[in-house]
Computed example of a mutant assay.
Amino acid sequence: MPRHKDVVFVGSALKDLRSFPIEARRAAGFQLDLLQQGEQPFDCKPMKTIGRGVNEIRITDESGAFRVFYVVNRPEAVYVLHAFRKTTQKAETRDIELARARLQELG
């Protein structure tokens, strides 16, 4: 049985995730639960522009598009770097920069 990892929220990521509409919040929670159990989320992609080992969970529902940037390549935990509502086609520079800064905080 795979080891269950803790989810650690960096900065305001938990508060930001909690501000998602209920369905998007549930979807994000389900995907993070998969990660904790060593599984792959349904809709994710690498975010090499942020750093090595960073991925994003993509959630789309009737209330909009949401993203959760996370790092899973650390043995001790899954780190959620940033959670936000997506308002443009590409991830905005400020979201990328914020996640990059939080990744550096982890060391």
Score class of each variant (00 low, 15 high):
residue 8 V to N: 05
residue 37 Q to E: 15
residue 79 Y to M: 05
residue 7 V to S: 07
residue 99 A to E: 06
residue 74 R to P: 08
residue 82 H to E: 04
residue 36 Q to S: 12
residue 96 I to E: 08
residue 92 E to D: 04
residue 6 D to C: 04
residue 14 L to K: 13
residue 101 A to V: 06
residue 25 R to I: 02
residue 102 R to N: 03
residue 69 F to A: 12
residue 44 C to D: 11
residue 22 I to A: 14
residue 53 G to K: 10
residue 67 R to N: 00
residue 60 T to F: 05
residue 70 Y to I: 03
residue 35 L to N: 07
residue 82 H to T: 02
residue 6 D to E: 10
residue 44 C to W: 09
residue 51 G to P: 10
residue 24 A to T: 02
residue 74 R to K: 12
residue 3 R to W: 07
residue 80 V to R: 00
residue 56 E to W: 06
residue 97 E to Q: 07
residue 6 D to F: 06
residue 13 A to S: 09
residue 19 S to P: 13
residue 38 G to K: 15
residue 84 F to T: 03
residue 27 A to F: 09
residue 18 R to Q: 15
residue 58 R to I: 10
residue 91 A to Q: 14
residue 13 A to V: 01
residue 98 L to D: 01
residue 30 F to V: 15
residue 43 D to C: 12
residue 103 L to E: 09
residue 43 D to T: 14
residue 2 P to H: 11
residue 34 L to S: 13
residue 75 P to M: 13
residue 6 D to P: 05
residue 107 G to E: 11
residue 88 T to H: 01
residue 75 P to S: 13
residue 93 T to L: 06
residue 33 D to Q: 15
residue 93 T to S: 04
residue 50 I to K: 08
residue 52 R to C: 09
residue 7 V to H: 04
residue 100 R to P: 08
residue 15 K to G: 11
residue 5 K to G: 05
residue 100 R to L: 06
residue 72 V to G: 14
residue 50 I to G: 04
residue 89 Q to N: 07
residue 100 R to N: 06
residue 42 F to P: 10
residue 77 A to L: 06
residue 17 L to N: 05
residue 68 V to W: 00
residue 66 F to V: 03
residue 105 E to Y: 01
residue 106 L to T: 09
residue 18 R to A: 12
residue 29 G to C: 09
residue 68 V to F: 00
residue 97 E to M: 02
residue 27 A to K: 12
residue 81 L to D: 08
residue 84 F to H: 07
residue 102 R to Q: 03
residue 4 H to K: 12
residue 4 H to S: 10
residue 78 V to A: 05
residue 106 L to I: 10
residue 95 D to F: 06
residue 23 E to F: 08
residue 88 T to M: 01
residue 42 F to N: 14
residue 98 L to F: 01
residue 28 A to P: 03
residue 70 Y to F: 06
residue 83 A to R: 00
residue 81 L to T: 01
residue 91 A to L: 14
residue 43 D to E: 15
residue 103 L to M: 10
residue 80 V to C: 00
residue 38 G to F: 09
residue 31 Q to T: 09
residue 19 S to T: 15
residue 45 K to Q: 15
residue 75 P to V: 14
residue 106 L to Q: 09
residue 101 A to T: 08
residue 42 F to A: 14
residue 9 F to P: 03
residue 55 N to V: 10
residue 90 K to R: 12
residue 52 R to Q: 12
residue 54 V to I: 11
residue 18 R to N: 15
residue 70 Y to S: 05
residue 21 P to H: 02
residue 54 V to D: 03
residue 105 E to W: 02
residue 43 D to A: 14
residue 69 F to H: 11
residue 100 R to V: 07
residue 42 F to E: 13
residue 40 Q to E: 15
residue 64 G to K: 00
residue 22 I to K: 13
residue 20 F to H: 06
residue 25 R to F: 05
residue 70 Y to V: 07
residue 29 G to S: 13
residue 1 M to W: 07
residue 23 E to G: 03
residue 15 K to P: 07
residue 35 L to R: 08
residue 92 E to V: 03
residue 44 C to K: 09
residue 49 T to F: 05
residue 99 A to M: 06
residue 52 R to N: 12
residue 6 D to S: 08
residue 49 T to V: 15
residue 81 L to N: 05
residue 66 F to R: 02
residue 103 L to R: 11
residue 79 Y to P: 04
residue 46 P to A: 01
residue 58 R to F: 11
residue 46 P to M: 04
residue 30 F to M: 14
residue 63 S to A: 06
residue 66 F to K: 02
residue 75 P to N: 13
residue 90 K to A: 03
residue 19 S to G: 15
residue 73 N to C: 13
